[in-house]
């Protein structure tokens, strides 16, 4: 132990341990809630998609103005990245995750392998969402409100599942990274906030011309 306190120690060792305990207690609830929200959004998107398929003139409930427009998003190629509508992936994936999260919240102990599978799932979701954000902002140039709900949920899922797996040892970290990890666990909310604000800023920048026309 060095005599200089590490950043994590300024608030006392207790704070870092508290945060880790908080994560351990809350992770199930966080996964369940975020997955449920994303699941609901995926279901709505799927329903809107079906309506659109049945009636090409249908204007989706979330086509509010030129920028907030599900219609242009849903009709894009990117909306079927794997050859079938993306929401299908969400319905299956988030549905499964919601059940897993609820089980954890109710006290079921998952083995390390299960946690690594959840980590793989949310990591894939995170990468996919990042790609979708890029496509939405810079290729399709429109935003779809329900999709943005999924973005937020996936950011939360990825942040918290990763932090939990790192802090609980499911993903092993070298001792030298321990202080950094403790910091990250203590400031879990800051990490998620920074991620989400980054997306907000990208949106503001990408559609600046449009926002400017609003009075």
């Amino acid at each position: 132990m060095s005599t200089e306190p590490s950043l994590a120690e300024i608030g006392g060792r207790g704070a870092a341990a508290d945060s880790a305990r908080f994560l351990g207690r809350a992770i199930g609830v966080i996964i369940a809630l975020a997955s449920l929200v994303a699941f609901a959004a995926a279901v709505i998107l799927m329903v809107e998609k079906l309506m659109l398929i049945n009636d090409p003139g249908y204007v989706p409930s979330c086509s509010i103005n030129p920028i907030l427009s599900c219609g242009s998003i849903m009709e894009s190629d990117q909306a079927e990245a794997f050859g079938f509508p993306n929401p299908l992936l969400g319905i299956v994936g988030f549905g499964t995750l919601a059940i897993a999260g609820a089980s954890v919240a109710l006290g079921v102990k998952f083995p390390r392998r299960a946690w690594l599978a959840i980590q793989a799932a949310v990591s894939f979701a995170f990468l996919f969402v990042c790609w979708l954000i890029f496509q939405s902002l810079y290729r399709i140039e429109a935003l779809c409100p329900y999709c943005m709900v999924v973005w937020v949920a996936v950011f939360a899922l990825f942040t918290y599942v990763t932090l939990f797996n790192l802090s609980s040892g499911n993903i092993r970290t070298p001792a030298s990274l321990k202080p950094a990890l403790e910091m990250a666990v203590r400031y879990h909310g800051v990490i998620l906030t920074v991620g989400l604000l980054a997306v907000v800023l990208l949106i503001a920048e990408a559609f600046w011309d449009y926002w400017r026309t609003l009075p």
Partner: peptide, 16 residues
């Protein structure tokens, strides 16, 4: 309020 929540809120306000 924890420092975590304080910093998060401060960031949001800053951006707004």
């Amino acid at each position: 309020m924890t420092q975590n929540a304080k910093i998060s809120l401060a960031l949001v306000f800053l951006v707004i």
